[in-house]
Design a protein around this nucleic acid. Structure first.
Lengths: 116, 116
DNA sequence: ATCATTCATAACAATATTGTTATATAAGGA
DNA sequence: TCCTTATATAACAATATTGTTATGAATGAT
């Protein structure tokens, strides 16, 4: 029914796994920009940037709208927030397992266990 | 000088961009596990899991140690924390730019600007 | 209408990723 | 030593990613 409703973590993380795309997101925190302006700092062709932006858009990290002859890109910050619940879950579970004093010994490598 | 000191964001994000690898990390929050145990829930060959683990290890998300015939995997939680500064920077800059009341109009699309 | 600018898309090559099967290696036990 | 279990690695195929150049389409200006 819904074809591309929830940009999933796979796509979000994959989109972030590229320094060019992260730099684009960073630049967009200063305000919306068109493709040519975003491409300027990079030693890369315009189509390449165009596709990087499409990756960001598909991941839901960027939205676009037309302004005259330009298609401005805008950061979609909520999508970035989608990864926090996952990070928090991992961190919470880790803390619950390991950050209890009585669990410290259990977390030590067997080789260390006897080293006292 | 230091050859692989800072597993960079590229590798970390890329490692996280796969549900199998995220599931492995999640499982490791319950405690260290060997490759076979980690592989069990997945409909995937042992070598495949072995390489997923290597991706996680290369990204610095997992460390390993030998226990008898097993090589146990352990979550390296600090590495996950490395992505937070980047996320925070983006979020902070975004807020600074957009979350001021007097900037709201500026952030609206031109088409919306006149809609009042 | 014509032209310049902005951007997208197609076609292609190079490389990376991911999975498989077959096989090697390493440690422990009989 | 020989066997078993746990894991890594090699070789390979399928697919995905990323970049390039060439070209198409949309918009605004003259």
């Amino acid at each position: 029914m819904n074809d591309s409703p929830a940009p999933n973590l796979d796509r979000i993380f994959a989109a972030l796994a590229d320094s060019t795309r992260r730099a684009i997101l960073l630049k967009l925190t200063d305000g919306d920009e068109g493709v040519m302006d975003l491409a300027a700092p990079f030693d890369m062709s315009q189509p390449a940037i165009s596709r990087h932006i499409k990756v960001l858009e598909t991941a839901g990290l960027v939205t676009r709208y037309r302004q005259g002859t330009h298609r401005l890109c805008r950061l979609a910050p909520d999508t970035l927030g989608q990864i926090e619940p996952w990070l928090d879950m991992i961190a919470d579970r880790y803390r619950r397992k390991y950050n209890r004093l009585d669990a410290v010994l259990e977390t030590m490598k067997p080789s260390q266990k006897g080293d006292n």
